[in-house]
């Protein structure tokens, strides 16, 4: 994969000249990255309906295309051709900006996600910080949509959602700090390479579970989908949205699910490293895909399994359980590292 890319790069440099080519090359790389991401985003919607259907002993969508494989395309066509309704008293420009502000951060984060040691758009040395920073921007789309809709349901839904996202971002960030301590680097490539001997999930199992529950809450997924809470808030912050503008919110949500699944696989499950060194012949990108795919499956699995949490329980879990536990693990990891390796020692 990386060899083919390098070949194309050299070929193009000869054709266009270095300056123009460097710009074209960036665009090509971004398209090559975003196309599979958007493909996954489209098809996780089908996977969700199929998986939950199977768990509830019904077939799920099976009319459009063989086995329902064209269903997401049909949905997309429907969303694009429906009318986008602008509420009379909405703040028009912000109302239309909000869905983009949810989708764009979810796509921006992919810039630093490595698929193999070479296959990465931007190997910055603060990859994890970058992802944490960008993912904290996702809340803006939601809070703006709630306010700009000028509707009580939407406003209450967005307040809830933002409070939830801000709270769980904290515990998600703290679960990554032990990993950074162990690796001694903020680069995601280093984080994966360091897991050669054993995956981070072995010494940091509680952190992995807190990470996963936190990201479920941060992506507003069931059982923490209180922002939507259809029995009380109609549809939460996107009550007033229709057609593709609400479709963009959904795309943002699913893009975030795919992103945090990949991040979890990279940070805790050894990324592209095979579980046993005998299995080395299978390419790393397949291992990464399998691990991330499993985490995405768990997202759908818990949606079909658990009833919705109550809001005060959700806040209690985040601030009074996850935060102290992850802070303690940071302390513990630091202590163990100091005793075994003497980090920062003289």
């Amino acid at each position: 994969m990386a060899e083919i890319l390098n070949m194309v790069h050299e070929l193009g440099e000869g054709l266009f000249g270095p300056l123009l080519w460097s710009l074209v090359w960036v665009v090509i790389k971004v398209v090559l990255l975003l196309a599979p991401v958007l493909f996954m985003v489209t098809y996780i919607t089908l996977a969700e309906r199929k998986v939950i259907g199977a768990m509830q002993v019904r077939p799920g969508p099976n009319r459009v295309g063989f086995f329902g494989v064209l269903q997401p395309l049909a949905d997309a066509v429907k969303l694009i051709f429906k009318e986008t309704i602008l509420p009379e008293k909405a703040d028009k420009s912000l109302f239309l900006l909000a869905p983009l502000l949810t989708l764009v951060p979810a796509l921006l984060s992919w810039a630093v996600v490595p698929f193999s040691p070479e296959l990465i758009l931007a190997d910055v040395n603060v990859g994890i910080l970058y992802i944490l920073a960008i993912s904290s921007l996702g809340a803006y789309g939601i809070i703006i949509s709630g306010w700009a809709s000028n509707s009580r349901y939407a406003f209450l839904g967005s307040m809830r959602s933002v409070a939830q996202m801000v709270s769980y971002e904290v515990s998600m960030g703290f679960t990554l700090i032990p990993v950074i301590l162990i690796t001694g680097s903020l680069s995601l490539v280093d984080v994966v390479e360091q897991q050669k001997d054993w995956w981070n999930i072995i010494p940091l199992a509680p952190m992995f579970f807190i990470y996963f529950i936190s990201v479920v809450a941060e992506t507003n997924r069931s059982p923490f989908d209180l922002p939507e809470a259809e029995p009380e808030l109609v549809a939460g912050f996107f009550t007033e949205y229709s057609a593709m503008s609400s479709g963009l919110f959904f795309m943002g949500e699913y893009a975030n699910i795919v992103l945090v699944s990949f991040l979890g696989a990279l940070v805790f499950l050894g990324g592209w490293l095979p579980p046993l060194s005998i299995l080395d012949f299978i390419p790393g990108i397949i291992w990464l895909g399998l691990k991330a795919g499993f985490l995405m499956f768990v997202f759908l699995w818990i949606r079909a399994t658990f009833p919705r949490y109550r809001y005060d329980q959700l806040m209690r879990l985040g601030w009074k359980v996850f935060l102290p536990v992850s802070l303690f693990w940071i302390f513990l990891t630091g202590l163990v590292l100091q005793l075994t390796r003497g980090i920062g020692g003289e």
Binding site: A133, I134, S136, L137, Y140, W147
Partner: peptide
Amino acid sequence: EFLAAILVMVYMGAVAILFL
């Protein structure tokens, strides 16, 4: 880049959200 990330995380991710 560290300062940039912290600026985005702390000021945009937390402080400005509370302002809002």
